[in-house]
């Protein structure tokens, strides 16, 4: 059997995390669990982005003793997706905290976390 590369394993993990997260968002009734679904979806996209920038056998994009400066372009993985994911993780954290703050307020007002009890916007 052909060996699966590291990037493919990471990609599969990311895809599975996205699907689990989407399933959680669509099927769960508890708002906290829906937020956990969003969080999983987030993590899945991060793993997919990093795995797309990965190159087999290359090292991290940090130019220290491990990398020959003259030949750096052939020895490192892609730094751009990593920089994007770095910002995305922090944004994800902020958005998760924002959603949790909304839920806290909703719970204090209505004393329920069941999504079916919030039908004000339903049409």
């Amino acid at each position: 059997m052909e060996q699966i590369s590291l990037a493919h394993i990471a990609l599969i993990t990311g895809i599975l995390l996205i699907l689990i997260g989407l399933w959680g968002i669509l099927s769960q009734k508890n708002i906290i669990k829906i937020i956990i679904g969003f969080s999983l979806f987030d993590t899945g996209t991060h793993i997919i982005m990093v795995s797309i920038g990965y190159l087999t056998g290359k090292t991290a994009p940090i130019l220290d003793e491990a990398v020959n400066l003259k030949n750096a372009a052939n020895e490192i993985v892609d730094p751009v997706p990593q920089a994007l994911v770095l910002t995305a993780i922090v944004i994800g954290l902020g958005i998760t905290a924002l959603m949790l703050a909304y839920v806290l307020r909703l719970y204090q007002r209505r004393k329920t976390l069941e999504i079916n009890n919030y039908n004000d916007l339903k049409w």
Binding site: I18, L55, I76, D78
Partner: peptide, 23 residues
């Protein structure tokens, strides 16, 4: 998403932008 799985080819080199950043 699995379309992107079959399209992924980790053996290729850096793309143009990343090569410029590295050099």
């Amino acid at each position: 998403l699995f379309k992107s799985y079959s399209a992924l080819n980790p053996e290729q080199g850096l793309n143009e932008v990343a090569t410029r950043y590295a050099e």
